[in-house]
């Protein structure tokens, strides 16, 4: 047993009358390895909170449902394409990605890598210290905010430039398709995603800080791509301002 942890975890000012007998190393229960805790009985407070949440959610949804009807268009007609034809809003990020490179890279490989990374986060950062605190500490918070701002600036610029001057159209016939559709978009995406990590690497970050930056890049990027695809793509899947769509197209009719 680690003697030094005993004195760290249990304060001498404890009013508890029992004494410490044994420390169980790395056991997954909350009482082990910790001093007297600041807890309350779950009943009735948790049950009450949950009841209030149930009432709140039901009321909010009822209110919304009384005011806004779920969309219903004409009966499905395979011979008549809608313009634009959009996936449900939560897949608009994927559909937007399709516009910027080879479909296999953009809609399959990169999203799969993203899901794989998200699943692996706890195994890449397995230091239990700091769990249960927003952003772990002040440095984590500022890293997250800076990274989010970086993505919010760079991604819309990339989307706009890549749609206005699409390399795979301009380079068609000049370079092989593999280069213009896979290699170039792949490099651009990698640079945008990895640049914050390269900057961060000079400050000797710990695993949690690397996770904070990488997750924030991917999470905010996913939001930017989803919002762009959902709100800013109009007829012909071209970029428009949401309030200035041609033909009276309203993106919210797709919900």
């Amino acid at each position: 047993m680690n003697k030094s942890r005993v004195t760290e975890s249990f304060s001498r000012s404890s009013s508890k009358t029992y004494s410490l007998v044994e420390l169980v190393h790395r056991a997954p229960t909350m009482m082990v390895d910790h001093g007297p805790e600041n807890t309350v009985f779950s009943f009735p407070i948790v049950a009450l909170i949950e009841l209030v949440l149930v009432l709140g959610v039901v009321m909010a949804l009822l209110w919304m449902s009384l005011g806004v009807n779920a969309p219903l268009e004409e009966i499905a007609n395979p011979n008549q394409t809608t313009d634009p034809a959009k996936a449900p809003w939560y897949f608009m990020g994927l559909q937007e990605m399709l516009e910027h490179g080879h479909p296999t890279l953009m809609a399959v490989v990169l999203p799969s890598l993203m899901v794989l990374f998200v699943i692996l986060i706890p195994y890449l950062d397995n230091n239990p210290h700091g769990a249960g605190r927003w952003f772990t500490n002040q440095r984590g918070r500022s890293l997250t905010i800076k990274t989010a701002l970086y993505v919010l600036v760079i991604m819309p610029i990339y989307i706009f430039l890549d749609s206005t001057f699409p390399p795979r159209e301009l380079l068609r016939g000049v370079l092989p398709d593999l280069v213009s559709q896979v290699v170039i978009p792949g490099i651009i995406m990698s640079v945008i995603v990895l640049l914050p990590l390269i900057v961060l690497n000079r400050q000797q970050p710990n695993a949690r800080e690397v996770m904070l930056v990488l997750f924030t890049v991917l999470f905010v990027s996913a939001i930017v791509f989803t919002v762009t695809g959902f709100l800013f793509r109009g007829p012909g899947f071209k970029l428009f301002l949401p309030w200035n769509m041609p033909g009276g197209y309203n993106p919210f009719m797709n919900l």
Binding site: P71, L72, E73, E74, I75, A76, N77, P78, Q80, T81, T82, A85, K86, A87, P88, F91, L94, Q95, L98, P103, T104, A107, V108, M253, N254
Partner: peptide, 19 residues
């Protein structure tokens, strides 16, 4: 089974075809 549903699923499942 309206136009919205039909084309959203057509577009959505076409992504799976790129794997």
């Amino acid at each position: 089974w309206d136009q919205l549903a039909f084309w959203a699923i057509t577009v959505g499942t076409s992504v799976a075809g790129y794997a």
